[in-house]
Amino acid sequence: MLDINAQPTTKLSRTKKGVYKQLIAHVCLIVLGITFLFPFVWMLSTALKPEAQIFKWPPEWIPDQFLWSNFPEALTFVPFGTYVINTLTICIWAMVGTCVSSALVAYGFAKIQWPGRNVLFMIMLSTMMLPSQVTMIPIFVIFKKIGWVGSYKPLIIPAFLGGAFFIFLLRQFFLTIPQELSEAAKIDGCSEFRTFWQIILPLARPAFATVALFTFMNNWNDFMGPLIYLSDEKMYTVSLGLQQFIGQYGTRWGMLMAASTVATLPIIILFFFAQKTFIQGISTTGIKG
């Protein structure tokens, strides 16, 4: 069933074998898929339940009647539209910044030989190893000193200076690209930058889609950053907005779930586009192994 790339020999057996294979694959995917659907389906079903039913125990998966009013209520209970625009602003800038800067840095770490490279790379990795709880306050103080607190700058500008996670990820992908390719390009007179731009980047499209998706998602869901850097409710983000449904004296579950459902939509849409690049990676572009 895991025979991903088999090229059957005869046409007859191909179709028959193919049908079985497809069937088995679908069964596996559907069974597993149902398990993975739980969180989302549960979120959606709670969003559609009347409040009295949310507390039913044991929980019921399918609402007695679909109650759509939680959606309009949730989206007007907090200024959700404003939050979405704010969050999109942060996410898109951070996405652009991270993609460009991380690609440059990853190339420097993966494809150019220079003394000190490995030491710097290790230092870069080590920045992820110290728990952020203890650097949070000093970083805040730095941003405060340069007057960025209270704006989106602390949430966006560092993205233009590369993210360690993404640099590492892209480095791994760049390393799998045959060295002969870039060397051939250089022999043809390509500069380092052109090699990066014209040879390496196009080959790493799936990796880029991943980086874009992940940065978007991280920033979309980021809670701590907006919480400590923003002090104006008009600038709040979606993740801060979701907290507005959780109260000291009880949570508005129906609205929380409705708002959460809406909040996942942009990521689902982005994922749909990103995963398209997985269909035709470089394997079909004819690069020799």
């Binding site: 659907l37 739980f38 996942t264």
Partner: peptide, 8 residues
């Protein structure tokens, strides 16, 4: 999908 459902 499970990775994108908000933790709350």
């Amino acid at each position: 999908l499970p990775s994108i459902v908000p933790v709350v």
